[in-house]
């Protein structure tokens, strides 16, 4: 087992511990568990950073090409982005929603471990890591947006129906959730846009054409338009609250399909070898 895989597994276990602590916080109302969870998560994140660096040294390329690497990198981005927002908002309830997601991604990543192979020569370009990193960071931010949107909808439902479950007492205010959602959108959209543009530039260098209507590109464009519409609605028409939350969730569903669904249902330049078996 290579060092990077070992580190990966330790990070996975650390994320598991953080998830448990966060869940204990909101289910058993133990604030201390949540605070401990935060530090465990930070520890896991540091380990995960080390995992990526070691993997880079082992393979000689940015570890975002196989399915395993992509999942690992997705979880890393999600945790990183969450911790970044946590600096500002300090809401362990969100952690209780985010950490299980990161954990599940890691578990799938652990199940798809492949030995580092020679990189497809096509991917050997300075643009490749830039494109993928931007795209993944954008994905992570939009994941967070979808999570706070789900929380918003739960909270809004309870306020409207006047029936409160225990979660009500722990969820942040509607305004905070909406604010985080907006912030995610205004960070995520530029990241996604730059991700698409860098991809196009790289495609031009690699294949001699900016846009080839590959299924992944098509779906990325659809998702991009969705988020563009939401951003426009927020800035121009004062969309907020429920409508913005629903939009964020739909956008995220598209994003998920772009990232995973397309690889499962279509063949194209963006597919992972391990899923296609070609």
């Amino acid at each position: 087992m290579s060092v990077s895989i070992l580190l990966f597994k330790i990070s996975l276990l650390t994320y598991f511990a953080a998830t448990v602590l966060y869940l204990v916080d909101i289910i058993a109302k133990r604030e201390k568990a949540g605070r401990a969870g935060r530090w465990v998560l930070v520890g896991g994140f540091v380990l995960h950073c080390a995992t990526l660096v070691v993997r880079y040294i082992e393979t000689g390329y940015t570890p975002v090409s196989s399915l395993h690497e992509s999942l690992s990198f997705s979880a890393w981005s999600l945790v990183g982005i969450y911790l970044l927002f946590d600096l500002r908002y300090r809401l362990s309830v969100i952690g209780a929603f985010i950490t299980p997601l990161a954990l599940v991604t890691m578990i799938f990543g652990g199940a798809t471990v492949t030995r580092a192979t020679q990189l497809n020569p096509m991917l050997k370009s300075w643009w490749f890591p830039v494109h993928v990193t931007l795209a993944f960071l954008g994905n992570a931010v939009f994941t967070l947006a979808a999570v706070v949107s789900v929380m918003y909808l739960i909270q809004e439902r309870m306020l409207k129906s006047k029936k409160f479950s225990r979660l009500f007492y722990q969820l942040p205010s509607l305004s905070t959730l909406d604010q985080i959602n907006y912030k995610c959108l205004s960070f995520g959209f530029p990241l996604m846009t730059m991700g698409i543009i860098s991809g196009a530039v790289w495609a031009n260098a690699a294949w001699g054409g900016y846009w080839r209507w590959d299924p992944k590109e098509t779906w990325a464009l659809i998702t991009w338009f969705l988020y563009a519409a939401l951003l426009h609605g927020r800035m121009m028409a004062g969309w907020r609250g429920r409508r913005a939350a629903i939009f964020s969730i739909v956008g995220f569903a598209c994003l998920l399909f772009t990232f995973l669904g397309v690889n499962l249902f279509f063949a194209g330049e963006h597919s992972f070898d391990s899923l296609q078996g070609r």
Binding site: L159, S173, S175, T176, Q179
Partner: peptide, 24 residues
Amino acid sequence: TEIASNAVSVSFAAVELARKIFGT
């Protein structure tokens, strides 16, 4: 414990709900 954390008068309950909507 959270023995004193939630409002038990109508007027305080209103304030608490407002906080859940507006935050500050």
